[in-house]
Design a protein around this nucleic acid. Structure first.
Lengths: 355, 355
DNA sequence: GTGAAAGCGCTAACAA
DNA sequence: TTGTTAGCGCTTTCAC
């Protein structure tokens, strides 16, 4: 039988006793906070090693009034979009002295205090926020307390100036819509929305309308379908569109996941892509290149955005004044679903070119 | 200018003072740990509301000697594999009183103590571990201290009996290999490994060899290629295989990400899939159905595994004895890349059938 | 039903 | 260079 050693965790006093010094001395060598004689330092380090001592974070946090962790609040951990974002955040946080506390908050309105404030000043020094609005109250409260925050892909409640990161939605969308009409002669382009309340989606819709106007194309409200940045959402939206009989020759999905649903629905309905209907997405998630046909889309630097947001938060935590980042540039990625024949992805192709 | 309110966080004493009671009373009503008169309770709750007080986690943790958080250690946050796993873990943790502390530990061997023990008894009550072996020392230390752990997809160091979750690799692989040979007559099937040290990959290789033997096929070491569960790895492996000229008529990739690389490399070399070479994967990640051709694979219940592991850890934290879970059943998913013509995925098709 | 007071393990003055 | 001590904000006996 495995003989488990149930002895308690060693504390700083244990180390001090074993090394024959006071606890403050131990604290000093561990934190390099004051000079200590070589001899003493050696003894302390030996004791630490022997007891495999590790300082208790909660106690330290309490004493220094700092938790050494930053929180991340988002709607879900899964999804192809969050993966690169998380990677960016994690890599930035890892090179700092902070830990990352993550909370995915699908539902809200709970009354358990631990659920109501999953992350806040009580357990983090600052937080990264990706929420679908509606949490304004909580954000404002933190804002008033000067609690460090950085927002991911949305502006905070009005009246606040919380720094945030964002994509240059307008620029990317102008390019891809122009590509669809100038190169492929599409004229009835449906826009597939993201979840209601998603600021990115709203910006993208605006940009879509603007692009249409600039290209001299009429805006038809019937061509705006509601999705939720999910495959099922995209599929359902297209099925409904097909059912109503509104004519269209292209669909611009608010994100790539929705685009895969669009493709599936179109194909199931016997429409060929891109001949009958061109489809394009947004984000350039990892699977986009492997879809059938390979998806033309707008590449958003998601990982970079995550890393940037984290670094902004870190800077704030280090006492710096941090303004919102300017919108991160996106890039047109032309593959086949728009009608181009490029067999190789042609990054940075201008809207007028095709490969 | 926004007029920020820089007042300090309210503490329990502030609440007590405002409510005209002692701090112990406040603690009592907040934790429902002893009867309190209705009147007092009301006053306390009002004060809490007024000050928007939230207990300071570190202080509470210190007092109760419990952190109320569980840690998750994994090699990376991104990747299509971790996404569902994280979702499973998160959803289980969220319905408990615990928080989730995440740490992605790409590199190791660092000497900063915070890096060396990113998660442990100092900041968590238990942990979920997804590591590529080599961290045995740390695991053993925690094990000896009775620190609650649950391992994800690997058995712990020998001599330990740390509970873990796993997939029924053997069963799934037997089915898919048999399908490849019985239905499609493939005889030279390459196995594309995962990262060295990955137990799942080793199990899968063993199962592959066993299946070959049972089907009366010879084992050829030249048909075992090394990958790393990544698209690039799969691509490189196939390119090399092609370069050496070893003949093969199918490739079984250790996971779906590698399979996409395999497909890309094969196609780039002008081989048609599945006519020339059949390819199958493992996991059934979200993109598998959308590949071209749609990927036949073995579906692993990743999200369920994550959730199960988290619930096991929670059970241990609640004082229960928890044995390792029996391997989670996997399921053959036949699409087109194996040579079947099914236009619709046929879940649970037997190895002998094709749609 | 309520309050006083002793810690939880650590850091940071302040002395020596 | 080192030790003593007073907290950090909270829970939890132990009295009352």
């Amino acid at each position: 039988m495995s003989e488990r050693n149930t002895k308690q965790r060693a504390t700083i006093s244990d180390v001090a006793r074993l090394a024959g010094v006071s606890i403050s001395t131990v604290s000093r060598v561990l934190n390099d906070t004051a000079p200590v004689s070589d001899d003493v330092e050696k003894r302390v380090r030996q004791a630490v090693e022997l007891l495999s001592y590790a300082p208790h974070a909660a106690a330290r946090n309490l004493a220094v009034r700092k938790t050494n962790t930053v929180g991340l609040l988002l709607p879900a951990l899964s999804s192809s979009f969050f993966a690169p974002m998380l990677r960016g955040i994690e890599s930035a946080i890892r090179r700092s002295e902070y830990h990352l506390l993550v909370h995915a908050s699908l539902r809200s309105g709970d009354n358990d205090p631990w659920q109501r404030h999953p992350i806040g000043a009580h357990n983090a020094d600052g937080m990264l926020l990706f929420v679908n609005s509606s949490d304004d109250e909580e954000i404002l409260r933190n804002y008033r307390r000067d609690f460090p925050m950085v927002l991911l892909f949305f502006k905070g409640p009005k009246g606040t100036d919380i720094p945030y990161v964002s994509f240059d939605n307008a620029g990317g969308i102008h390019q891809i819509v122009e590509h669809l009409v100038s190169v492929h002669g599409r004229r009835r382009i449906v826009y597939l929305r993201g979840p209601v309340g998603n600021q990115d989606s709203e910006e993208r819709e605006l940009a879509y309308r603007l692009a249409l106007a600039q290209l001299g194309l009429p805006y038809d409200a019937a061509l705006v379908a509601r999705g939720d940045y999910s495959e099922q959402g995209g599929q359902a939206a297209v099925e409904q569109l097909l059912a109503t009989g509104v004519p269209f020759d292209a669909v611009f999905a608010g994100d790539d996941e929705a685009a895969t649903g669009v493709i599936a629905a179109l194909r199931a309905a016997g429409r060929s892509i891109p001949e009958d209907i061109a489809v394009v997405g947004f984000d350039d998630l990892t699977f986009a290149a492997h879809l059938n046909p390979p998806l033309s889309t707008v590449r958003a630097p998601i990982e970079r955005a995550g890393s940037l947001a984290a670094r902004m938060l870190l800077a704030i935590l280090h006492g710096e004044e941090v303004p919102s980042a300017s919108p991160l540039p996106v890039e047109l990625v032309i593959r086949r679903s728009c009608g181009c024949q490029a067999s190789v992805p042609a990054p940075a192709a201008g809207p007028g070119s095709c490969r």
